[in-house]
Amino acid sequence: MNEIELLNWARGPGLAYATAIMFFGLSIRVIEILSLGRPEELAEVRDSGVRDGWLMILKRSLPEVRHWKYITASYIFHIGLLVVIFFFIPHTHLFRDVFGIFWGGWPNYIIDFFTVLSIAGMLYTLVARFYDPARRILSKMSDYLAWLVTFLPLVTGYMAFHRLGLDYTTMLAVHILSVELLMIAIPISKLTHVVTFTMARWYTGSNQGRRGVRS
């Protein structure tokens, strides 16, 4: 298999399989969660909780300034990752191709900046995982693997764009394959949070809203 065949496999069957596995898995995960049901609230509520449910989904994305030392790196990493995934022009074409929606991308130097930021943020979170006692005690092998499969696409993408390491064709193929690995990992690891965080926040937020608790 030469590099073009590898790239074509990654862009073709590889991408299709990974997409299928990711959506298949996420679909299962979400239904598994929903089907467990939520007990009916019998206490007299102060509010339906709908507003606070939505607010929670949005507001928990704001930085918890109180703990800035703790969250800055991962906060930056998340922002950077989202920018890179959704606003790098070549990526936007992939989304247009798959979902039929197009929102235009941002200039490369901005993407480049966010990529570096993301990589730095991720490296810091890895170091913190070793050195922060709470994170270290929580971390299992699966946490480090999840870190790795998230890190690889960032680094390989950066290298491909800057023509570093392997030749561009191979690097691009490796990048796409690493993304496919990430896509497969999403439904079977803690990376499921990319979808279920909205559910978690909804449940907590709406529950708090019913009780009149400000989040």
């Binding site: 074509n8 862009r11 073709g12 069957p13 991408l15 299709a16 997409t19 299928a20 070549p90 990526h91 074409h93 992939l94 247009r96 191709d97 798959v98 979902f99 039929g100 691009l172």
Partner: peptide
């Protein structure tokens, strides 16, 4: 574009 899939992942 080169960044898209070669078939229809959609």
């Amino acid at each position: 574009a080169l960044s898209t899939g070669t078939n229809s992942p959609g």
